[in-house]
């Protein structure tokens, strides 16, 4: 059997074509911050800025992975493209933020994504929570994007111009993530008794993870006003005929949460999947 490159479509896809680069896939990622002035303003502590960018990048990376796990499992093709595109937006935000953090700390985005241990990840526990059903998907997306949109709106005027630019770009994306999620929560909440019950159950199940989003963080360059977050969530819940849960926040462990590297059981499984190829074949290119 002839297995030369010209006969195999997969080889053709991965080959350099005449212009010195390839279509479709490969490991040739370029620095997403190429050509941008990445000096840290004098009044900022570079280590604190790197930790904060890492935390925001980890939220996006881990939650994007959870959303990617939905692809090919969604109820309709329209939701496939929606969820895949939202996951892609968040992965793009993660790349920019990990590059910003890594640039300060002397590491690449890949080193940060693939070669850190669980306790070094600073993502909130909401991001790693197991996928359940479609109601859980849209309720979590509503909570996550409402919080992150409010945070990024504040960060658009952050004292670090690189972070401010990343946030300003993210705002446009998070706004339509939130609206997509909100419309689904209303539709399911105001739908059949079964869809209503499942959506209320998803809210009740996820609500304990909301508290961590508002914990004070010494590295934070912006905070979200809980009243502004509540106003959006309450509007959506009221429109969908859903009740705001009253469950208490999931307690920190020894005073520490996901932001401090203390994660739930779900996190190890995500990292095993996310990191296994990069760890089995370090520095591999194709």
């Amino acid at each position: 059997m002839n297995t030369s490159d010209d006969d195999n479509p997969y080889d053709l896809l991965s080959q350099d074509h005449d212009e010195g680069h390839r279509w479709a896939f490969g490991t040739g990622f370029a620095d997403p911050l190429a050509g941008i002035d990445t000096s840290v303003p004098e009044q900022l502590d570079p280590d604190a800025l790197a930790r904060w960018c890492l935390a925001l990048g980890d939220d996006a990376l881990i939650y994007s992975h959870r959303l990617q796990q939905w692809v090919a499992r969604l109820p309709e093709l329209e939701e496939e493209t929606a969820v895949a595109n939202i996951a892609l937006d968040l992965l793009g935000q993660a790349r920019l933020l990990l590059s910003r953090a890594g640039g300060i700390a002397g590491q690449t985005e890949d080193q940060l994504a693939f070669f850190r241990e669980e306790k070094e990840f600073r993502s909130v526990r909401l991001a790693e929570h197991d996928n359940r059903d479609f109601a859980e998907l849209v309720v979590r997306l509503l909570i996550f994007s409402t919080w992150r949109l409010a945070l990024f709106e504040e960060l658009s005027s952050a004292p670090d111009p690189v972070l401010a630019a990343i946030a300003a770009k993210g705002v446009n994306e998070l706004a339509y993530h939130r609206d997509y999620a909100a419309r689904w929560v209303v539709r399911l909440g105001d739908g059949t008794p079964v869809s209503h019950a499942k959506t209320q159950a998803a809210l009740d199940n996820l609500w304990p993870l909301v508290g961590e989003l508002f914990r004070p963080d010494p590295d934070a360059l912006a905070t979200v006003d809980p009243a502004a977050f509540d106003a959006v969530i309450d509007t959506v819940l009221a429109t969908g005929g859903l009740d705001r849960p009253t469950a208490a926040a999931l307690a920190p462990v020894g005073g520490r949460t996901g932001r401090d590297g203390v994660h739930t059981e779900a996190m190890g499984y995500i990292l095993a999947e996310l990191q296994s190829v990069a760890r089995a074949h370090p520095d591999a290119t194709w």
Binding site: H21, F29, A30, G35, L88, D89, G92, I166
Partner: peptide
Amino acid sequence: TVTITPTYSGCPAMREITGDIHD
């Protein structure tokens, strides 16, 4: 020196565009 701006944070075409401009 060519300066371009991404459309979306995760736009996978940026790398292709960069390569095309260069070539």
